[in-house]
């Protein structure tokens, strides 16, 4: 049952990313390119996506999900160094290639070999992260 919800969610996500044009790196880089040929599409995508999610969060109060005991707990409010540094690194890669993780997955089936190059490098980065975090945190811990 949980896998079915995941599959439906992933399918909606993939369809939305494809239809919205977010797998087109030119549109994404165009959004970030405020000093060049600016493309506002991404704002409509993000805005459109936030609307159903806003209601989904609102209606969650006092209820429970179908297959889980509770909804995700309130997020912490602390803005730590990890959030800032990680998001800055992510943003730099996002700007360079015009791909973030969702569209990187959604475009694998039709985008061609260069999408796989990006995807494999992204997987490698994800795999390396726990080791990198350990290496950087060791001096502080001791």
């Amino acid at each position: 049952m949980r896998s079915l919800f995941s599959l439906v969610s992933g399918a909606l996500f993939g369809a939305g990313l494809f239809i919205s044009g977010m797998t087109d790196t030119r549109k994404v880089q165009g959004w970030l390119d405020i000093f060049g040929d600016w493309n506002p599409t991404l704002a409509f995508v993000l805005g459109g996506a936030i609307v159903p999610m806003f209601f989904a969060w609102r209606l969650a109060k006092g209820r429970r999900p179908v297959t889980a005991a509770q909804f995700p707990p309130q997020p912490p409010v602390e803005i730590d160094r990890r959030l800032a540094v990680g998001s800055l690194l992510f943003g730099a890669g996002w700007g360079l290639a015009g791909l973030c993780p969702g569209p990187a997955i959604a475009s694998l089936g039709y985008g061609g070999v260069f999408h796989w190059v990006f995807f494999v490098a992204m997987l490698l980065g994800m795999w390396l992260t726990p080791y990198l975090l350990r290496a950087f945190q060791r001096p502080n811990a001791s």
């Binding site: 939305g16 990313l17 494809f18 239809i19 409509f44 999610m53």
Partner: peptide, 23 residues
């Protein structure tokens, strides 16, 4: 922008399904 908005709504619905289905 119309395609962006339509796709965005689908993305948000995907998020709602995962939130309400699996928490």
């Amino acid at each position: 922008w119309i395609w962006g908005l339509a796709g965005g709504l689908l993305i948000g619905m995907g998020g709602a399904v995962l939130l309400w289905g699996n928490g």
